[in-house]
């Protein structure tokens, strides 16, 4: 991953990285190192439980990177993000089960359905004031869950179970925990990289402009509505793929997995990690998904701790633990470092 040029609420003073630690954190190859660690982890511990926890964490990273597009890049607070995962998981589960297809073949259908869901949720609401948008997305999240719970095609409250695996070639079973873990990690890494790349594209800059000042962005000729809708659709696709992996991982999908709490957890990962900074978000997602497993015995207190943490972080560090560095005036410098940034408007 290359240097992030995001602008946020970050402190205005950006000095050169000083200590060894911050040099490590700002290192361009940090992403590859993280991927390397993820790929090597099963050689250290490969019990079914460890693999299960690590796979869940990887899927959670995918969700957080998708929500980061919506909240971090574009500044649209989405409190019902898990609905997109539900759409993905149910679509792939229903189709795969009905036609006895491996889950990979449901990808086109999931793409169509999640883009549709993004359009349906985004189109009427994106003209709204930002705080209205938050409540409406929350409402949509609840509508999705209740609908899944009430319909017969989604299996009602028990949901769908016995979902086939991702794919099967001869004796090679993709559902073998270690194999599935590797598939998940590679897919998630690709999506995280793609999201980071998107953030640095022309569209990504438009998103940040909208986030910082929508009226100014509009005045500068950015079609804000279209740009916001695109953020929504990208977020939806990321969520949908998270849903496919989720369905394949658990082999079961039920409405209880898509309650508001789950949306809130993904949001926390994004906020704690540092909105807009993909690396921070990945770390945030790992912390949020692994910490409860480490604290399984304290399960009742963890949400209290999370709530207090959110308040404290926002009050003392509104930009998250590891916010995106740099701001637009630095761009001239960046262009020298990275010629790819030239040519963008």
């Amino acid at each position: 991953m290359t240097e992030n040029v995001d602008t946020t609420l970050a402190p205005k003073k950006v000095g050169a990285p000083q200590s060894f630690l911050s040099r490590v954190f700002e290192s361009r190859q940090l992403g590859w190192v993280a991927l390397g660690i993820a790929l090597l982890a099963p050689f250290v511990i490969a019990t079914p439980y460890a693999l299960n926890v690590m796979t869940t964490a990887a899927i959670f990273v995918l969700l957080a990177s998708g929500l980061n597009i919506v909240v971090g890049y574009c500044g649209l607070l989405d409190l019902g993000y898990i609905a997109f995962m539900a759409v993905g998981a149910y679509t792939s589960g229903i189709i795969a089960k009905a036609f006895e297809l491996p889950l990979v073949f449901t990808i086109p259908a999931v793409l169509v359905m999640t883009v549709l869901a993004g359009l349906i949720i985004g189109a009427p609401t994106l003209r709204l004031r930002s705080d209205y948008l938050a409540i409406v997305t929350l409402g949509f999240g609840e509508i999705t869950r209740i609908t899944a719970n009430n319909l017969t095609i989604t299996g009602g409250p028990s949901g769908i179970f016995g979902i086939p695996g991702l794919f099967e070639v001869g004796d090679f079973d993709s559902q073998e925990p270690a194999v599935f873990y590797y598939i998940t990690v590679l897919v998630v890494a690709a999506f995280v990289l793609a999201a980071a790349r998107l953030g640095k594209s022309r569209l990504g800059r438009a998103w940040r402009f909208v986030r910082e000042d929508e009226d100014a962005a509009e005045a500068m000729g950015i079609h804000t509505y279209k740009v916001k809708l695109l953020a929504y659709i990208f977020g939806a696709i990321w969520g949908g793929f998270g849903g496919i992996l989720f369905a394949a991982h658990l082999s079961a999908v039920s409405p209880q997995s898509f309650i508001f709490l789950q949306s809130a957890l993904v949001l926390m990962a994004v906020v704690l990690g540092g909105m807009g900074n993909m690396r921070g978000v990945v770390i945030g997602a790992l912390v949020i998904s692994l910490l409860p497993e480490l604290l399984r015995d304290l399960s009742d207190y963890r949400y209290l701790a999370f709530g207090l943490l959110l308040v404290v972080v926002m009050v003392f560090r509104p930009q998250g633990f590891w916010p995106a560095r740099g701001y637009e005036p630095e761009r001239r410098k960046m262009e020298k470092l990275d010629p790819a940034l030239k040519g963008a408007s």
Binding site: N52, V53, H249, L250, S254, Q256, S257, E293
Partner: peptide, 8 residues
């Protein structure tokens, strides 16, 4: 009482 937790 949650699928994800019970699988873990």
């Amino acid at each position: 009482c949650d699928a994800q937790q019970s699988v873990a």
